[in-house]
């Protein structure tokens, strides 16, 4: 696994915590990142990264350890099961695929919160925000994936000093 994916994840993690756009109008960068690495790397690596950043999110938030890891692992599983829809060629299936993953994540989060935490209230306003973030993330997915791909090419060209593969080549369909 390239160091690139690890550094990109760290950058997005910190961006998510100090960045100027609060949720729900900020795309869920880490979910998009996990979808991207699942498409680009073998499943065990993607699972490892999902655990790493999930646990980091839990340490910096108020969630019990493992909650965000569960969400990011959902993204890995969702992506692994629908690689064809999430490939980098077709925009609309990609938006729909990311949207479905976000719905699954929200369902798991609501379920776990109800099961585990002493305050089992999920207000309508919260669900509305979740819907807003779902739309923001899903609609921005093609753009963000394109940006990740450009960064990846830049990394290969400028850091590793080797000619990158063509823009859309080498992907798993």
């Amino acid at each position: 696994m390239s160091l690139f994916y690890l550094l990109l994840g760290f950058f997005l993690f910190f961006l998510q915590h100090v960045g100027p756009f609060p949720a729900p109008w900020r795309p869920d960068f880490l979910t998009l990142y996990i979808v991207f690495v699942t498409l680009r790397l073998d499943i065990p690596y993607a699972v490892g990264l999902a655990w790493l950043y999930g646990l980091l999110l839990d340490c910096y938030g108020l969630a019990p350890l493992g909650l965000h890891a569960a969400l990011l692992l959902t993204a890995v599983m969702g992506t692994a099961l629908s690689r064809r829809r999430l490939n980098f060629l077709y925009v609309f299936p990609q938006i729909a695929g990311v949207g479905l993953i976000m719905v699954l994540q929200a369902a798991i989060m609501v379920g776990l919160l109800h099961l585990l935490l002493p305050v089992p209230v999920v207000h309508l306003a919260m669900l509305r925000q979740a819907l807003q973030q779902l739309l923001t993330t899903a609609l921005s997915a093609p753009l963000v994936f394109g940006l990740f791909r450009l960064l990846e090419i830049g990394w290969q060209r400028w850091i590793l000093k080797k000619s990158p593969r063509p823009f859309l080549a080498g992907l798993r369909w």
Partner: peptide
């Protein structure tokens, strides 16, 4: 079998971690 195996282990680990971290005092 890789994916189901990873899913199984991860689910087990997640529930272990969550149940440990909602305990007081939190051992984690």
């Amino acid at each position: 079998y890789q994916l189901p195996l990873i899913v199984g282990i991860s689910v087990l680990l997640i529930f272990t971690l969550i149940s440990a971290s909602i305990r007081e005092p939190n051992p984690l």
